[in-house]
């Protein structure tokens, strides 16, 4: 059952939830990473937009992705906004991952620390923070050839 709009906004108060990205955040509650895909031309885009930037179709379908891809950007926050369970005394890693579904389609989240580096293969997992599931990448367990 879909969350009421008010409840969705309350549960994701640390994000800017709006009409265009509400489906993405509803997906998170089910531990599903939903990325917008065009129902007409098939192009993926992120962050969520009301129109397909490729063909201007409004037939946008939030669609689950595999969550696998390659680390494209990597930072480690030595300071940042207060967040439950985040202690910046150990620098907090954030990665932008280029998803396998489409070249240039990227999603940003935290990552399980370790020997993480740009170029590595990762896969998606979920942790719990402040009562909502939060996407987290981990090093891919096996190399798919």
């Amino acid at each position: 059952m879909a969350e009421a709009d008010e409840e969705l906004l309350e549960r994701f108060a640390s994000h800017s939830v709006d009409r265009d990205n509400a489906a993405h955040f509803r997906g998170r509650l089910n531990r599903q990473l939903l990325i917008n895909r065009c129902g007409d031309c098939g192009r993926w885009h992120h962050p969520p937009k009301p129109v397909c930037p490729g063909c201007w179709s409004t037939a946008i379908e939030p669609s689950e992705v595999d969550g696998t891809g390659e680390v494209h950007l990597l930072i480690r926050l030595h300071q940042g906004p207060p967040a439950p369970g985040v202690d910046y005394s150990t620098p907090y890693p954030v990665v932008t991952v280029e998803l396998d579904e489409q070249q240039g389609l990227r999603f940003t989240a935290t990552v399980e620390e370790g020997d993480i580096a740009i170029g590595q293969r990762v896969e998606l997992d979920w942790i719990e923070r402040a009562g909502v599931p939060v996407p987290i990448f981990r090093l891919a367990r096996e190399v798919s050839l």
Binding site: S14, L74, I75, P82, Y92, V94, T108, A109, T110, P135
Partner: peptide
């Protein structure tokens, strides 16, 4: 804001840090 923003992002000023790491790579 009543609730602090999530740190899981490279939006705003953080974006330059992210592309600095890519530049080094």
């Amino acid at each position: 804001p009543a609730v602090a923003p999530s740190p899981d992002t490279v939006m705003h000023a953080v974006g330059y840090t992210a592309w600095a790491s890519r530049y080094m790579h």
